[in-house]
Design a protein around this nucleic acid. Structure first.
Lengths: 162, 162
DNA sequence: TTTAATGCGGACCAAGTTAGTCCTGTTTAA
DNA sequence: TTAAACAGGACTAACTTGGTCCGCATTAAA
């Protein structure tokens, strides 16, 4: 399951909550209460988002957090990058931050690497088209959603469900 | 880093190796030698691919593994599903295999879930367009690849590199 | 018929990562 | 001055992952 960490998941929930607050700020406590995410985790996630420049914070009494930019200008890729590192499926696909040397001991025989670049790029494009504002909008009526826990449209091609 | 597990990575490398063998079979030992993946891991991965119906095996002396279908008929999503479970970024996005009940304790307040379906779908489409045959083809000349370990085209939007 | 090569199916373990907690500053409005 | 809030760590428990190993079943070839 191409896993995204729980923290990133939290981050997105928290950001949508903040986006809904408009230009007001929200305290970590309020966000925790409003979303159900445990407070210490909220702090941790907000810390990360702050460091990435997605949030602004006001310290002291009656402080809080707010979006650094309008929600429409925060692409999903940036959120994920902030909390999870660069968007890529494999080490090979990460630019720059390549493992020192020989870290991928398959390098000499791996003929697949070039393709990963393309694949990662594709995913980034897909995620980059969405912004935080899109995630705050009401759920679009698409592909027969609405039946949450049953078995609506089998999307996976087949194979094992681990 | 939207991580894909190492096993899946191995699986893809092994499958490309098998695809290159055409209709011949290869033993686990040969594949390990040919790819540099440690033998026990090769066995493990092949086991998974076999269970998913991507491979056929012949037991006994001079046995081995072969592709169950031509490489062009094996979509990348199916490979990933086989080794990693359904392709989805969050639990919410997985159809059917939903966590029993209340496993996502944010459910009542999470207004984001519907969107994940769309996002997951997007990624699946992107990955599903590629088949094993594509991965075996020579690396396409795109976006200035070729400089592997330096800093070619910065693809990530920005933010932290964890 | 025997033998050896090979896949099959587990159990098992060590290491790394993750999620979560806690504590001690620092800042600032009231 | 005080209390509310953020800042930035260290720390821990639990889980996942990658990797190893073993005994059994199957089958081609000697």
């Amino acid at each position: 399951m191409l896993r995204m960490s729980k923290m990133t998941d939290y981050g997105i929930v928290l950001l949508t909550e903040l986006a809904r607050a408009g230009s007001e700020t929200r305290t970590a406590r309020e966000l925790a209460a409003g979303t159900g995410v445990p407070l210490p985790s909220v702090s941790k996630v907000l810390k990360g988002l702050l460091g990435a420049g997605l949030l602004v914070s006001h310290r002291g009494a009656s402080g809080g957090y707010g979006l650094a930019r309008p929600a429409g200008q925060i692409p999903l890729t940036e959120i994920i990058s902030a909390l999870e590192g660069p968007v890529a499926l494999t080490e090979c696909g990460v630019q720059g931050a390549h493992p020192p040397a020989g870290a991928c001991e398959l390098e000499t025989v791996c003929r697949v690497r070039g393709h990963w670049r393309v694949i990662n790029r594709t995913i980034q494009d897909a995620l980059g088209r969405l912004t935080l504002a899109d995630l705050c909008a009401p759920v679009p009526r698409l592909v027969g959603l609405g039946v949450p826990a049953s078995n609506p449209t089998p999307v996976t091609v087949g194979g094992a469900q681990s």
